[in-house]
Design a protein around this nucleic acid. Structure first.
Length: 421
DNA sequence: TCTGGGGTCCTAGGACCC
DNA sequence: TCTGGGGTCCTAGGACCC
């Protein structure tokens, strides 16, 4: 196997910069939903000590002092830029495995006649020119080594954005210099356990006894060890594996204390989850709802989940709303300040393959026609044009995005304007 | 005022069945 | 006055990822 990992640098920030060149060279951050935490940082923002995942309100002073530009998440923009990036990368390989919004594995099998470093530099230059996003390229004989090579490409200036760990000599040279915590799949807990055994660098991990790795960090640890030694255990998935579950959950912008607001939120979550189901031509056999109070602020604590099998598999918005509200009523307790809730669908199966009850077939056909009409109108006129009654218009609990950039590429009303002269 | 959202995989334990 | 072995399903929690 020969595989490359191409990864967008500071992806959300880079997307913002494409449409506002004044953001180049200055500290920029992007925040998550409700402008709660930092989810993407420019190098300048990293340099002044803004940590990943930190609550934005704690950093207000620091950010003001350094004139940091802060954006709310613009998911429509990032998803569209991601799609363009994947299209571009697809011209460099017959097989691409899209791993996340900003990362793809490219199959480099059979390209050994090429100078892979040069090929990586060409990929980097092309994505920059066509899409405007800076990327780094890591190449290796397994996914784990390609990930590690990508880390080197990003952090070690001598690689200049492209690193090939395909050769044993390059691995011997680089691996002793990298902390084991940088390996894909080794988190803080595993890092601490390995440190107790004197395993600190990637090289230390690579030469560890596989059985010991297994007892300390389970089968995933043993798999990582093999991958570091060039034995591929993770295949390239050119067809994305079927989803196991769909979740629609949000933190509320203010605490919810009355059931009518919880009901609205549940209806909205169920609606969104049903849309995701239908996008992927799936139906669900199991639904769960949960609600919880704030874990951090000392409010009286309550958290509960209720999950159950549905009488028949469905992707019908109205049926899922009905079930979600039914369950929400049962776990709702008066007197608490709820901060977060959600709807989760499990046991997904392709629409048409689900077991059906005797009287279900006729109902299912009718529901499918209604749902495709709903999706067609919302697709054409904008999501939320048609929505079920009871979902709420005011949405007091809803998500806040105070500093969002325009949907530059996906909304006609927000296209960038160019002026001459 | 205020701490993301959406996933996967692994392990362990309880309930229940034959 | 005992505590097997094999199986399934479910729940809960931990860990990790982007």
């Amino acid at each position: 196997m020969r595989v490359a990992l191409v990864d967008g640098n500071n992806f959300y920030v880079s997307c913002e910069r494409v449409f506002d060149p004044k953001l180049e060279g200055v500290p920029v951050v992007v925040m998550g939903n409700n402008d709660g935490i930092i989810v993407s940082r420019s190098n300048e923002a990293k340099a002044i000590g803004i940590p990943m995942g930190a609550p934005a309100f704690k950093l207000r002073d620091l950010m003001r002092r350094h004139n940091v530009r802060a954006f709310s998440s613009n998911y429509a923009l990032y998803a569209d830029m991601s799609r363009r990036m994947v299209e571009t990368l697809s011209t460099f390989t017959p097989e691409i495995d899209v791993y996340s919004i900003d990362e793809s594995f490219l199959n480099f099998e059979g390209l050994d006649h090429l100078d892979l470093n040069a090929y990586g530099r060409e990929i980097r230059a092309t994505v920059k020119q066509w899409i405007g996003i800076p990327v780094c390229v890591g190449i290796g004989p397994t996914k784990t080594l390609a990930k590690l090579a990508n880390h080197c490409a990003k952090k070690m200036p001598e690689f200049n954005g492209v690193c090939d760990l395909g050769g044993a000599d390059s691995r011997d040279r680089v691996l002793p210099a990298i902390p084991v915590s940088e390996v894909w799949g080794i988190g803080p807990a595993a890092t601490a356990k390995l440190a107790d055994l004197g395993v600190h660098t990637v090289h230390d991990l690579r030469v560890m006894a596989p059985r010991l790795a297994r007892t300390v960090i389970t089968v995933t640890g043993e798999r990582i060890l093999r991958e570091l030694n060039g034995v591929a255990c993770l295949a390239l998935e050119h067809v994305p594996p079927a989803r196991k579950g769909i979740a629609s959950t949000r933190s509320f912008s203010h605490p919810v204390t009355v059931f009518s607001e919880m009901r609205e939120a549940m209806a909205a979550y169920a609606t969104r989850a049903a849309e995701k189901l239908r996008e992927q031509k799936l139906v669900t056999q199991h639904l769960a709802v949960f609600m919880r109070t704030n874990k951090f602020n000392g409010d009286p604590s309550y958290a509960n989940t209720m999950g159950f099998h549905l009488p028949e598999a469905t992707a019908d918005t109205f049926a899922l709303i009905h079930h979600a509200i039914w369950a929400a009523k049962r776990i709702w307790r008066d007197g608490y300040r709820y901060s977060k809730a959600g709807v989760m669908l499990n046991g997904l199966v392709p629409a048409g393959f689900a077991p059906q009850t005797l009287f279900g077939a006729a109902r299912a056909g009718k529901s499918a026609r209604l749902m495709s009409a709903l999706d067609a109108i919302n697709g054409k006129m904008g999501s939320g044009t048609l929505r079920p009654a009871g979902m709420g218009i005011k949405r007091e609990w809803g998500v806040k995005f105070d500093g969002k950039s325009p949907a530059w590429t996906t909304n006609w009303d927000e296209l960038p304007a160019a002026r001459a002269g």
